[in-house]
Design a binder for these strands. Structure first.
Lengths: 330, 330
DNA sequence: AGCATTTACGTAAGTACTTACGTCATTATT
DNA sequence: AATAATGACGTAAGTACTTACGTAAATGCT
């Protein structure tokens, strides 16, 4: 049984590595047969330096997509063997330029026909049927250059989580969770002030009775985040008491809650959404900015009821971009 | 500049490795994000053991195409982490069977959706255009299973050397080389006997004057091997004084010389080729056998003129197989 | 010109495997 | 039944790279 083949796309890296080692082992044997005292791993440097002016360590590392310590090590071995020598760069005293010695050039020429044999044998092997391995590799590398694997998978994970997070309305049974989540957040650097305490103590009076809204994010029966819309006047709400379980960070819970809140505010015929933030909340501010919130100068803003250094952001709910953003996701 | 891509088929192993590491790095990041204390390299074992009876170290190693110490190490880490446990095999006391703990099963289930995301993202990436990387990999692996890279390249190198070795006739200027090569060979374990000395001293009288032939193998202006045909009677020759420069072993020089000698004997209307060998010469005997030489019982053979323990082999030159073998190569 | 930043290189240590080797249990052979 | 050969581990050391970090030279900034 070959479980790695069984796993297919999932174990691609293992499979690539396996094939690479198999080929590398055989290449080593071929060079060993030549009784030339030449190591397969020296090949890229020898071929790169052949018939070309001296080149620096980092420049070689870049061309071979290796790290510079790797090139440094290989260069050391090849210098000991007498294949290359290094000279100081006249212009730049940090650089050590590598070039082939006459002996190195001789070895390169001796190996050239063998390299042609390897090339021909490989070609014959990889382009047997329709699909050519080198072409597939190039295409895969290009695809990764456009968007790496991490981003591709994260995108899918986030999309999945986004779909599986449900936004639900306030219910009496959730009051303790509203408080817990917010306290957890506030304890993390901020003091709980009187204004906070009143809302958390009795959200039904402080938020809902004033024509406000409280939303919760639910993931598999667990409430992992919350936020509230507090009525300011007939055309505006304050988005506040946004809190996400610290264990669930990075799952776009905050974005999901904010977008639902915006959509609800629009539904309630509000024209403007305000919120208060402080410069320390970097992740949160990034989210707000990406949703279209902009700074409100102090003289145009409502008074700040908290003692912590804060300022207001606002979002125009009549703007087309905002309406489209929300529609798309709901 | 990307020299590895430039090299194409020649640097396939490096390229595979590079891509493998790139994918592995991203996979590690994805698992790290999950705050599950799970290492990417554990994945193959976890997935293999999932929902399956306990399995032994070597059996797992085989399924994953890893060495057993690798599996042993991974198992150690996973056991410390509490993902797997090991139980003694009832039937075989050498075996340590690995199985998932309930905790391990839970982690496996938690990761399952992420694996699906990785699978989907990989699929999207590798099968962009016509050529699918996984298909190419499978085909390449199959091609290597049929004939590995070492054999493929060796075949080409040998064929190239075979073509570049020229077989030439005796000339006065080569007499010293005929002697050198044979002395080199004889010193290597055998004593130079009187019979040898006479021939090496004066091959023109001992071989050529008696209607014999001396051939040399030339590689780029260097004489690297020789052999002789000594006339026994009107229908048979002795193939003797075959010697190849020790530095040029493994290049099929001996085969090339022997085949030329056979072809020359046929041209000279001989019906039988004899040669003397001893059981110690394993490589040479392999060559003779592969050319069709067979053992001649002592009572049918000419007397043995040397003191070393020897026997005769003979080749029927009228046989179809022999004639075809020689024709093809000349 | 003076200072911070960037770049080039070297060294050390880590990584995810491998090969090499030793021990003990099992199986095959005589 | 004794002995040899094979198989399953476990441990140590090697491999071909990597990341991390430190130093000195070059470059950018004010």
């Amino acid at each position: 049984m070959d479980w790695i083949e069984e796993l297919g796309e999932l174990a691609l890296a293992s499979r690539l590595r396996r094939l690479s080692e198999r080929l590398a082992r055989d290449a080593s044997r071929i060079y060993a047969d030549q009784s030339l005292d030449f190591e397969a791993r020296w090949f890229p440097i020898l071929s790169l330096l052949g018939g070309r002016p001296a080149d620096s360590i980092t420049s070689i590392a870049e061309a071979l997509r290796l790290t510079h310590p790797a090139v440094n090590q290989l260069a050391g071995e090849m210098e000991t063997r007498g294949l290359i020598r290094s000279v100081k760069d006249k212009q730049d005293d940090r650089k050590r330029l590598l070039e082939l010695t006459p002996d190195g050039e001789k070895v390169r020429e001796a190996l050239q026909p063998i390299w042609e044999d390897i090339r021909a044998a490989t070609r014959e092997m990889i382009s047997r049927s329709g699909s050519d391995l080198l072409t597939s590799l190039r295409e895969t590398e290009n695809a990764l250059d456009r968007k790496n694997m991490y981003e591709r998978v994260r995108g899918r994970i986030n999309a999945r989580l986004f779909r599986s997070i449900e936004i639900i309305d306030y219910a009496k049974s959730l009051r303790h969770r509203f408080r817990e989540l917010n306290e957890q957040w506030l304890e993390n650097g901020f003091q709980i002030e009187e204004a906070d305490r009143r809302i958390l103590e009795d959200p039904e009076t402080e938020i809902l009775a004033g024509d406000g809204v409280i939303l919760f994010a639910r993931l598999n029966d667990r409430i992992i985040g919350t936020c509230a819309l507090r009525r300011i006047d007939s055309t505006s709400f304050e988005l506040c008491k946004m809190a996400v379980d610290p264990m669930e960070r990075g799952k776009q819970v905050g974005r999901r809650l904010a977008m639902s809140a915006i959509s609800r505010a629009i539904y309630l015929r509000a024209g403007r959404l305000l919120l208060m933030t402080s410069p320390d909340l970097i992740a949160a501010n990034g989210l707000y900015r990406s949703l279209g919130f902009t700074y409100v100068p102090d003289d145009e803003a409502p008074p700040v009821p908290y003692e912590r250094s804060s300022y207001w952001l606002a979002l125009d709910l009549n703007e087309g971009a905002t309406r489209k953003l929300v529609e798309k996701s709901v």
